[in-house]
Design a protein around this nucleic acid. Structure first.
Lengths: 241, 241
DNA sequence: CCTTTCACTTGATCAAAATCAAATGGCGGC
DNA sequence: GCCGCCATTTGATTTTGATCAAGTGAAAGG
């Protein structure tokens, strides 16, 4: 679990990496100064508008990314257009499916975001030579698997009200991991996205928001800003007692 | 993707491992004869009755396992008893969550099964020294993640009929990976388990079976044995076109 | 052989969420 | 300020699957 990192002189690592959020929590944290320099040669940073696609379902993966800022949604679409969000990724998560050429999901910025791209083959080569890096990716895969399974319980067994409360709790606890106060935050998703995440319609999501608001579990301003006066009460509404 | 394995003289590896199914497809396949011998010193094989618990939600993980025969279901339970199966594992899958002391799910034999147990700390130590082993576990975690996300789409967006058809398709394609003919198989789960896997009630599952039977998509004998005359037709009913 | 049990099926009714259909309410552009 | 555009909310109705309640049928045990 504990990852050793050599003490790196800031001057040894690429300029752009020095200020990078993703370098510490993210995969780059396990790389040496040399490796970071090498990877950085091939990497490029991009600003993404909300809604911008990083990769599409069925496309060939040419890049992996680190999320430096913002929230990225992972979605699956059926042939007839029905859609399900199967994961949300927050900075400084790694974005990509190692060891597979074709993406089974599409990834799209949910909010205005910033990512750092690097070529698939460069990282794949680096992974082969760096067990620490594979370990780090393995850890993230397991974390995502745990989250996916939690969400399966939500999708399969919870009521609409519990689903919406579960979503709010998820966002409260993930949107700003630094912050001590999780009781006030902006929703990174539209009502339509929330519906796609919860397996509901936007009307049902809206009604449940209204209901939670009327029961004073949450307060809402400007449709996107949520305040939770009592996090335990929200948790109980989410069915997590 | 390609995993090199040294040419091992059968006589160098433990007797019980020689005939083991899990050794080739499973994690043991990447171990050297010495490592296998070492691991085998601490491992033990067990027969599990259908319904026997391997580990319970919230328990401390002391063992990992390989599934040698049978089907194991991974479930999550809510405080009020609502239950969701979050994964099915087939031989020769690895069973366990590396790097976490407490299990977030429970694992239970769905059919009469056989597993090979080994202590958590022995494998954890082996993983640290053997990048190939971590790579193999990483691969399986990614496979399970892909499967979990596929199932999230099923849980969130498919109708009861599509869910049941999706389940049948999943079993047809996983129950016996050797077999060319996937059109006839025994269901490893009861109607109650299927309901818990699909986020439905047993009554709804039963009605959808009846409906698929009446539409000649499947035939059923003795409640558990299913024949699929046209796999593509089943796939269409599952919403996977 | 008959009873009991258990898994499953079938039927009738109910409730939750989907669907269809209008409001409402910011917000940017003119 | 007014208009038109979206996202969101609210309302009426329908549909799907859940719930409640009996059956059925096969296997185990007396």
């Amino acid at each position: 679990m504990e990852i050793r990192r050599q003490d790196i002189h800031n001057s040894d690592i690429p300029l752009v990496c020095r200020a990078c959020e993703a370098r510490h929590g993210g995969v780059c944290g396990v790389l040496t100064a040399e490796q970071l320099t090498e990877l950085n040669k091939h990497s490029s940073r991009h600003r993404l508008d909300s809604g911008a696609e990083v990769i599409g379902q069925g496309e060939t993966v040419v890049n992996y990314s680190n999320i430096m800022r913002g929230v990225v949604k992972l979605t699956k679409v059926m042939a007839d257009g029905r859609q399900q969000i199967v994961g949300l990724q927050f900075a400084p998560d790694f974005l990509g499916r190692p060891f597979l050429a074709e993406s089974a999901i599409s990834a799209e910025a949910a909010t205005e975001s910033e990512i750092c791209n690097f070529p698939r083959n460069v990282l794949d080569r680096l992974v082969k030579r760096t067990p620490e890096l594979e370990h780090r990716l393995h850890q993230q895969a397991l974390k995502e698997l745990d989250e996916a399974r939690d969400w399966m319980l939500t999708l399969g067994r919870k009521s609409a009200q519990e689903k919406v409360a579960s979503f709010l709790y998820l966002i409260a606890t993930h949107i700003d991991p630094e912050s001590v106060d999780m009781s006030s935050f902006d929703l990174p998703l539209s009502r339509a996205d929330i519906a796609d995440f919860l397996g509901l319609t936007i009307e049902t999501v809206s009604r449940q928001f209204t209901k939670l608001r009327k029961e004073n579990v949450i307060r809402i301003e400007n449709n996107r800003h949520v305040t939770v006066p009592d996090m335990d009460r929200l948790m109980r509404h989410a069915g997590n007692d």
